[in-house]
């Protein structure tokens, strides 16, 4: 890094993109480089990329995932997923569609799932459409919810293993 900052010093004054060409000569090498970089980091930015990294995942209605989705945090799904989902808390929104197994500590379903739900706590809201089995410890079914499948209170028992969230590799 030190090698580059040394080289930068000479180029700073020549570069039209840098905001403070005069100051960069007078100051120690590291700080003007850091200052002049920041403004450049904004051109396409329209969202939270600049302020910290969120841990919650939001799959919006325009997004479709084909494959496996895992998280050690919460996931909110409004789009379409073909594949398995695993997270601490999964919320499947009213217009969302999941084909596959949804696993988690808590699963709240307002949309459509074709497959299976395995969760400690399952909430099927009025708009839920569930085709497949639900393996749970604690279930709430609101009036209006649709289920085609078995509900078995066997979550955490021998045949159904706990989700094993600790094995999920977080983004590094």
């Amino acid at each position: 890094m030190t090698m580059f900052t040394r080289n930068d010093k000479g180029q700073d004054t020549a570069s039209p993109a840098t905001a403070q060409p005069v100051r960069s000569d007078a100051q120690p090498a590291a700080s003007p480089v850091a200052e002049t970089r920041r403004p450049q980091a904004q051109p396409i930015s329209s969202s939270s990329a600049a302020h910290g990294t969120p841990s919650v995942s939001v799959i919006s209605k325009a997004l479709k995932i084909t494959g496996q989705l895992e998280s050690t945090e919460d996931i909110q799904i409004e789009g379409e997923i073909e594949g398995d989902v695993r997270a601490v808390s999964v919320m499947v929104g009213a217009n969302a569609k999941v084909k596959g197994t949804v696993r988690g500590d808590q699963v709240q379903l307002a949309g459509q799932v074709e497959g299976k739900i395995e969760a400690k706590k399952v909430i099927l809201t009025r708009t839920a459409r569930m085709s497949g089995d639900v393996v749970h410890q604690d279930i709430t079914i609101e009036s209006g919810a649709f289920i085609d499948g078995h509900c078995r209170p066997e979550y955490g028992k021998a045949e159904v293993k706990a989700p094993g969230l600790k094995t999920v590799v977080a983004g590094s």
Partner: peptide
Amino acid sequence: PLSQLGAAALVKGVLDTDGEVEIHGT
């Protein structure tokens, strides 16, 4: 709407969207 993939998330497969997406995970 914006889709975002949190830092703790891992996707193996295809992500397909007509909109904007932010990837903070893997």
